[in-house]
């Protein structure tokens, strides 16, 4: 009786899911932190945009929840080399939050509860590229993944998607954040493998 092999077939890969150079796929959602996880009471939570002139725009949680939200499915690419495909997030677009903010700044420094910061060009926060996300996979965003709310900027390495976000400072001159001022790349494009300064 002949043995008929059905052959080996790798798992079908959706063409949309490509791994940036040097990355591997994981089904897990690793938790990486540079410090303790802050537990932020929603009645104390605020999100502040401060412009280069010192003008402040502040939302409390109720005001933030009243803003129009979007649900997005995106791939994540961490500089520690894992990538996770098709993660679903709900959040408020930075286009909405920055709509009435008058600024000529070119740079943003994102601040978190705790002492974390990260720098991003302002134009990378606009045009449907970034959100303040508060739900993940249909559930409230858990604290270990940045809840109650985190920045989501999936076209850059995931350290730019600051957990526990509390505000954005708009700047004329770029200021480096927590990891950028000790060797990590100012921009962090995973497709150009911009992990470290000089990449």
């Amino acid at each position: 009786m002949p043995i008929v092999s059905r052959g080996f077939h790798g798992r079908a890969r959706d063409a949309r899911h490509r791994l940036p150079p040097g990355q591997y796929e994981t089904a897990d959602f690793p938790v990486l932190s540079a410090g303790p996880t802050p537990a932020v009471d929603l009645d104390q939570w605020e999100f502040t945009v401060r412009t280069e002139t010192g003008a402040r725009h502040i939302w409390d949680w109720a005001e933030f929840m009243a803003l129009p939200s979007q649900t997005k499915t995106v791939d994540l690419h961490c500089v520690t080399k894992w990538s996770k495909f098709e993660t679903e997030w709900q959040g408020v677009s930075l286009d909405v939050l920055l709509e009435d903010v008058e600024t000529s700044a070119e740079y943003a420094l994102v601040h978190s509860y705790g002492d974390y910061t990260t720098n991003v060009p302002l134009e990378d926060l606009l045009d449907g590229q970034a959100w303040i996300a508060y739900r993940y996979d249909g559930e409230e965003l858990p604290p270990e993944h940045g809840g109650p709310a985190r920045l989501l900027i999936p076209h850059l390495y995931f350290w730019k998607s600051a957990k526990w976000v509390r505000g954005i400072q708009l700047l004329d001159v770029e200021e480096r954040g927590f990891w950028e001022n000790i060797g990590y790349h100012d921009y962090g494009d995973p497709w150009r493998e911009q992990r470290y300064q000089g990449d």
Partner: peptide, 13 residues
Amino acid sequence: THAYLGGPGMVLR
């Protein structure tokens, strides 16, 4: 000290 490892770098707090 409190060591946070496994992320982009090592942090001692």
